[in-house]
């Protein structure tokens, strides 16, 4: 564990930043640390965190998933349209929607791994195609009601804790096992560090890439369904914000956007940081537009400080390597 922490100073940094941000926010808006506010912060962070799980894996493998917004939108709309306010259809609708998310992930992964399409283009294209499909299918009208069970899962409580916190925790556990304790994780980091070296070492490069995008499709679809419980309806565009936040959460969490490093535990901190930030900014009494500008700038600065540190480590490494190379 010691070496894990030594290797992942950026993750610690993300958590430290989160604590500082929490204290600063509490200073500006004293009600922020109330139980109900902390609870809603966790709920909102959970949506970001769940979407960003898939994004974390995709970024570690050296790609990026831009199809998240419309996978999320589609999942929300399809689920809400098929269920209305009924709980029972969820038995088959949830597996169906998850399968759909996985299928889109499969298309993304196959395009990248088998046909060599750059991840940006591949996922951007599926995003747009999905958008078109949903518009054709629904005519663009929102689905006004969602099942109670979904509402319970996203905003309900077990004791003092929100239900979704348990879902998030379970997913974080699975992601951590995948990354730290399974062959898949080793393959992922190797592939993201150097596809050639991974290939030469017998890593199943295509399979690993495809599975990674499939997981991203799954988590985006799951987040889409849960999000309808929070908003009480499903509408087009509800997933738009999650593209930027999912990538930012991964980057704040210490992953290199170039692949090969990072961990979901960092992304969890990233998701919390972003959500606290959205809570802090309104307390500053800024207009909506100014809010967005500050929000974007803060993320840019946080991430570039992170990558600055990363670059520092990298160049020290190269310097050292050079000296020993002889």
């Amino acid at each position: 564990m010691n070496t894990f922490l030594a290797r992942n100073r950026l993750i610690l940094l993300a958590y430290a930043g989160m604590v500082v941000l929490l204290l600063v926010t509490a200073m500006f808006s004293p009600g922020f640390l109330s139980a109900s506010n902390l609870r809603s912060t966790v709920v909102l962070a959970a949506f970001v965190g769940i979407v960003a799980l898939g994004q974390t894996l995709v970024i570690i493998v050296g790609g990026i998933d831009l199809s998240i917004p419309w996978v999320l939108n589609s999942a929300a709309i399809v689920m809400a349209l098929l269920c209305g306010s009924q709980d029972t259809p969820l038995v088959w609708v949830v597996p169906l929607v998850l399968a759909g998310g996985a299928a889109i992930g499969f298309v993304n992964g196959a395009g990248v791994a088998w046909f060599g399409v750059p991840p940006i283009i591949m996922t951007l294209a599926t995003n747009v195609i999905l958008q078109g499909l949903i518009l054709v299918l629904t005519g663009g009208s929102p689905a006004p009601s969602v099942p109670d069970l979904i509402k319970f899962l996203s905003v309900g409580r077990i004791g003092p804790l929100p239900v979704i916190a348990f879902i998030w925790l379970a997913l974080a556990l699975i992601a951590t096992l995948l990354l730290s304790k399974a062959a898949f994780g080793r393959h992922l980091y190797a592939l993201g560090t150097s596809a050639t070296v991974a290939e030469f070492s017998g890593v199943p490069t295509a399979r690993t890439t495809i599975v990674t995008y499939v997981i991203s499709g799954l988590t985006a679809a799951l987040a889409g369904m849960l999000l309808t419980g929070y908003s009480g309806q499903a509408y087009l565009g509800m997933g738009d914000a999650y593209l930027f936040t999912s990538i930012a959460a991964v980057a704040i969490g210490g992953a290199s956007i170039l692949g090969g490093s990072g961990h979901y535990l960092g992304t969890v901190a990233g998701a919390l940081v972003l959500t606290i930030l959205t809570g802090l900014l309104p307390a500053l009494n800024l207009s909506n537009g100014a809010l967005l500008i500050v929000y974007g700038a803060v993320i840019l600065i946080t991430v570039s400080i992170g990558s600055e540190i990363f670059a520092g480590i990298g160049s020290r490494l190269r310097g050292k390597g050079g000296s020993l190379d002889g």
């Binding site: 190797a190 991974a198 890593v203």
Partner: peptide, 26 residues
């Protein structure tokens, strides 16, 4: 040949992950 930014350990065992896996766990 090498993942330069990864450890000696990860490099050495990259091609033989199955050899130290128990029921899927490393």
């Amino acid at each position: 040949g090498l993942l330069l930014t990864k450890s000696v350990r990860e490099n050495l065992t990259l091609a033989v992950i199955k050899r130290f896996s128990d029921r899927g766990f490393l």
